[in-house]
Computed example of a mutant assay.
Amino acid sequence: MNNQTIEKLKNMRLGAMARLHQQNVEQNKLEGITCDEYLAILTDHQWEERENNKTERLIKQACFRQTASIADINYRNERNLDKNMFLRLSTLDFISRKENIIICGASGTGKSYIAQALGNQACLYGKKTFYGITSRIFKRLKLCKVDGTYLKELDKLNKMELLILDDFGLQALDVQDRESLMDIIDDRHGKRSTIISSQIPVTAWYEIIGGEGTVADAILDRIVNSSHRINLEGDSLRKGKI
């Protein structure tokens, strides 16, 4: 009877429940447990495994470059990173409010790590997240325009509850990059959250975006006005703790 139950659980894709039940039967751990209690134990075990698998899948699909954690953030004074403010951001309320985050600072100040730590936190909360180097995203979108999959690729990005555009502005945008950025930002504005990290101060973004002033104005208006700002300072942290 137990073997049949275990097989049926496996066939219903309740593997964690099946394994725990088999273990309890083999180790004779069923004495003194009511039916309701035992059902709750099996159900909780199956639920926890599914949630863990979902988190692992979200982290894998996010394509992070680093294993970053909120717990490992360094708040020393010279970084100009307000701990209370950042911990409030780590609750992810900004995602619920469809707000953005802009992280600026010199090379090595930990912009990418902080962005990925927030992204990892979002995955832990079950949020679909994607991390990418901005220039590489633009290159991929150019290829998608050639093979006719641009709208499909754009839709994938726009479905992400949190999109992280890292290393924004390292080079000036050309016409296609500008169009892609406008499409991404316009579709996400007021609907999804975006984190942008850059070595370039926001005051110089207008020139980097280039093109007609109305396009740059439209992009910056949608990004900046609904963003929390983090301006990192201090020396490079690449050899120390992030």
Rank of each mutant, 00 (worst) to 15 (best):
N2Q: 10
I6W: 03
I6G: 12
K8W: 07
L9H: 00
K10T: 07
N11T: 14
M12S: 14
L14R: 04
M17R: 13
R19Q: 09
L20T: 03
L20W: 01
V25G: 01
E26L: 14
Q27F: 04
K29A: 12
K29E: 04
L30K: 13
G32V: 06
T34Y: 02
C35V: 13
C35H: 14
L42N: 10
L42W: 02
L42G: 02
T43H: 12
E48Y: 02
E49R: 15
R50W: 01
R50T: 01
E51T: 05
N53T: 08
K54L: 04
K54P: 02
E56H: 13
L58S: 03
I59S: 15
I59Q: 11
Q61F: 00
A62S: 14
F64Y: 09
R65P: 08
T67N: 13
A68G: 04
S69C: 09
S69Q: 11
I70G: 00
I70L: 02
I73F: 03
N74Y: 01
R76I: 10
N80K: 07
K83C: 05
K83G: 05
L87V: 01
R88A: 04
S90F: 05
T91C: 00
L92D: 08
F94R: 00
F94W: 05
K98G: 00
E99C: 01
I103Q: 11
T109S: 05
G110L: 07
G110T: 08
K111C: 07
Q116M: 12
A117T: 05
L118V: 05
G119K: 09
A122E: 12
C123N: 11
Y125W: 11
G126I: 08
G126R: 10
G126Y: 01
K128N: 12
T129G: 10
T129M: 14
F130K: 15
F130G: 01
Y131M: 09
I133H: 15
T134D: 02
S135K: 14
R136E: 13
I137N: 00
I137R: 07
R140S: 06
L141S: 03
K142A: 03
K145P: 00
G148E: 01
Y150A: 02
Y150V: 01
K152W: 10
E153C: 13
L154W: 04
L157E: 03
L157V: 13
L162F: 10
L163G: 04
L163Y: 12
L163A: 07
D166Q: 11
F168W: 10
G169P: 06
G169F: 08
L170E: 11
A172W: 00
D174G: 06
V175T: 11
V175A: 06
V175E: 10
Q176A: 04
R178A: 10
R178V: 11
E179F: 04
M182V: 02
I184A: 01
I184W: 02
H189G: 05
I195R: 04
S198N: 12
S198E: 12
Q199R: 11
Q199C: 07
P201L: 07
V202M: 13
T203K: 15
T203V: 15
A204C: 09
W205G: 11
I209Y: 08
I209D: 05
G210H: 13
G211D: 05
E212W: 09
G213Y: 07
T214P: 08
V215R: 05
V215Q: 02
D217F: 09
I219Q: 01
L220M: 15
D221W: 03
R222C: 07
N225Q: 12
S227F: 09
H228C: 00
L232F: 06
E233T: 12
G234M: 07
G234K: 06
S236D: 04
K241E: 11
I242N: 12
